[in-house]
């Protein structure tokens, strides 16, 4: 009897493994293996001779001023854009969840930017923020001095605005879904206990929203690290220092066949993201612990 049970278990496991195999192989081939290749290239001197050089590439990249500029700009952008993307999306979701008029029209309009191709958005942004663009003409009319939006550090504001415009809608939808899952009996119980709206939000709703906050933060962080198309189309391969991001560095090193630098930069970026996500998961776990216990 025991033998037939363990045989059946083994058979079940092999059948499961067989069905899982294509996915596992796909993940290995299209994700894990390329990542291993990237790690390999980060330890060789150049794509031709491929001699092992230890940590030399890592030292070269971390001391390279272009990489440091790109890294710093990307971190600054993420530090500003990601919290804004999360908080503003949450506020929008709360506003829509409160039952305002034209709820579905507003929801659709916030989602529209997701569908518009980046290249066409960029054209409009250039018209708005060019030196002689619409925004500068308003500033001039108001008696101010025109700003070099795309050729100075003010460009960061433009990129953040573009990022938020593109991503708020998606985050908002996620928060709407999460708000829909907040148990109404907990909210009602808090109301009965005399809690105000702000107290209910911070002590009840926010707790239930914490997994979604973590998820949208991670998603927004990944998207912020990948912001390249917009900046590239607005400002080209080599923008002014303030707009030069990690993706520029990696794109340009690929174009000049510096695969070792490209791979090393990618490893650094992955490492930073892993650390940030680990911190995020830890915070989320601690904050939402009592919900899990429930």
């Amino acid at each position: 009897m025991k033998q037939s049970v363990s045989k059946r278990k083994k058979r079940k496991k092999s059948v499961s493994g067989f069905f899982l195999a294509p996915s596992v192989v796909g993940v290995l081939v299209f994700f894990v293996l390329p990542f291993l290749v990237v790690i390999y290239f980060s330890f060789v001197d150049n794509p031709i001779s491929k001699s092992f050089v230890g940590l030399e590439n890592y030292i070269n990249v971390i001391t390279n001023s272009a990489f440091r500029t790109a890294f710093g700009n990307t971190m600054l952008f993420s530090a500003i854009a990601v919290p804004l993307a999360v908080i503003l999306a949450m506020l929008l979701a709360l506003m829509l969840d409160a039952g305002i008029p034209m709820y579905s029209q507003l929801r659709s309009s916030f989602l529209t930017p997701l569908m518009v191709p980046t290249a066409s958005i960029v054209l409009i942004w250039q018209v708005l923020f060019d030196n002689k663009g619409v925004v500068n003409s308003w500033i001039l009319k108001a008696g101010g001095d025109p700003v070099e939006w795309l050729k100075s550090s003010a460009g960061l504001f433009v990129i953040i605005l573009l990022f938020l415009w593109k991503n708020l809608g998606y985050n908002m939808v996620l928060f709407l879904a999460a708000l829909g899952n907040v148990p109404t009996d907990s909210v009602e119980a808090a109301e009965l206990d005399g809690a105000g709206k702000i107290q209910i939000f911070f002590h009840v709703k926010l707790r239930y929203l914490s997994p979604m906050i973590a998820f949208t933060t991670i998603l927004s962080m990944i998207n912020s690290f990948k912001v390249f198309r917009e900046v590239y189309l607005l400002t080209g391969d080599y923008p002014v220092g303030a707009l030069y991001t990690l993706q520029h560095y990696m794109n340009n090193t690929f174009a000049s066949a510096d695969y070792q630098k490209l791979s090393t930069a990618a490893i650094y970026m992955s490492f930073v993201m892993i650390v940030i996500m680990a911190i995020m998961f830890a915070v989320e776990h601690w904050y939402g612990k009592d919900l899990e216990e429930e």
């Binding site: 272009a66 080599y238 090193t253």
Partner: peptide, 11 residues
């Protein structure tokens, strides 16, 4: 400024 970034990449 832009050229310095371009050259720094090559180092």
């Amino acid at each position: 400024s832009r050229m310095q970034i371009y050259l720094s990449e090559t180092k």
